[in-house]
Amino acid sequence: MKKLSLLSLLIFTLNWHITAQKYFTKTGHISFYSETPLEKIEGNNKSSNCVLDLSSGKMEFATLVKGFQFEKALMQEHFNENYMESTKYPKASFKGQIENYKIFDLNKNDKIVGKVTGDLTIHGITKKVTTDATFNITNGKIDAVSTFNILVADYGITIPSLVKDKIAKSVGINVSAKLEPLKI
């Protein structure tokens, strides 16, 4: 009997441990979008890392700049060489916190809308960003989605006047991460 209660205690603590752990993905989808009447530019990265600490509501994203894929090879080349200088700055990242965070209850399917605030680092420059984010909880998994805009000038990226009508000053960024429990 004693053994049994010890076992159930162990299972209970293990369970508690599992729900308190980190959620993550290695296949987060980050895309950016620039649209002007002259040209539509879209880049997609499907191997971005995202970690959400369920106990604190802290979030982290990391992505490889060279991993963004464009429809046209020339756009991709310009993105890497002229604007993002991806050889010098190979990564972009975000470190932030869900505001007024209450620990997600993963046992019921739910849709939580909140704000995330943190530091966005692009092109070696870090800026504070606040964005709306939606967390869809289904069957113990979390689908985190967010859309926000940034000004390219904020990140020290200058657009030559020759192409200034083709590239938007403010680009949209979409983030979608299907998070699963991190198994250690």
Partner: peptide, 9 residues
């Protein structure tokens, strides 16, 4: 090769 995060991509 585009680099490494937790994994090489």
């Amino acid at each position: 090769c585009t680099g490494i995060l937790s994994d090489i991509v």
